[in-house]
Design a protein around this nucleic acid. Structure first.
Lengths: 153, 153
DNA sequence: TGGGACCATATGGGCGTCAATGGGAAGCCG
DNA sequence: CGGCTTCCCATTGACGCCCATATGGTCCCA
């Protein structure tokens, strides 16, 4: 195998792939490379806390969320809601031999994807988005960010 | 080979190159020299927050943004949105053996470039612009009006 | 000082490889 | 027995890697 470059060991950038007649979609090769490098074979999926997107990562993703829940006040509505999402909404998935995953109703219902899926890198995990929703969310984030950009950090 | 002069270790000035039939464009040699001097082999690209331009730099460019994210609560909506921009909107690129890069739809859509690309030095990184948009933005900056109209959808 | 050789950059294009996609066939669970 | 899933193989279109050419500028030398 070729050399793995220093910063490519994170999930970065985005790509949109088609869902085939059987409901499968290819995970972009760069993302699969990251998964392979981290020895991640079992994928854990859960809903994003603020966006209509499904987060996908290894078991470490689940652990990160559980730590966050543990830190919060156990009686707070936030911790309660998070536990509901993380523990009640989480799903395990596997890739097939060609590096594709099944787009289940869980994914379709929450993200709104129908024919295409946008894979979005999030550094330590990646997300599945309905293409249009991703573009809109990014445009909104940029707009909100630009208003503060004028001020020095 | 020759001695590298102090002033050449930064991205300065601008140049416009053509996009060929395969969608490639040569990065100006002075910029490539800076990249080589800094040992930058993988390029990190991100949409500018205020201009219709794509910023290109080394891994340090990404790390600068990531430091900002790290300062916020990792589960906050703000950090989430920021990561959506930096990780989801960022792209890694490599130059081919001749020092060219692919002009992807990502670049075309955001900058509006079609047949030519203007490379603009920004000291620690450089940017890709649609030639006319660059001239207009520069003229506006010269006139002292930093405000820039929203670009057309 | 003018001409010409030399050189680096920008550009064009062929070709092989790999990823994305499509579809068949066998296996599993209802 | 039927639908759905999993494994496997075929296709194709894009991208990376390679070499060729042109063009403009610089340097050297007469």
């Amino acid at each position: 195998m070729g050399r793995v470059f220093g910063v490519m060991n994170r999930f970065l950038s985005n790509a949109t792939n088609r869902i085939d007649a059987k409901g499968r979609v290819s995970v972009p090769a760069p993302f699969r490379a990251v998964l392979a490098q981290r020895d991640i074979q079992e994928l854990y999926c859960l809903q994003d806390l603020v966006f209509p997107a499904v987060s996908v990562g290894g078991p470490d993703l689940l652990e990160r969320y559980e730590r966050q829940i543990a830190q919060a006040d156990p009686f707070s509505p936030e911790a309660n809601a998070m536990s509901l999402l993380v523990h009640g909404g989480g799903v395990y998935m596997r890739l097939d031999a060609e590096g594709r995953l099944m787009v289940t109703d869980f994914i379709r219902d929450f993200t709104g994807v129908t024919t295409e899926v946008t894979f979005v890198g999030r550094s330590d995990h990646f997300q599945l988005w309905q293409p249009q929703a991703f573009h809109e969310a990014q445009a909104a984030a940029r707009a909100g960010r630009a208003t503060f950009a004028a001020r020095p950090a």
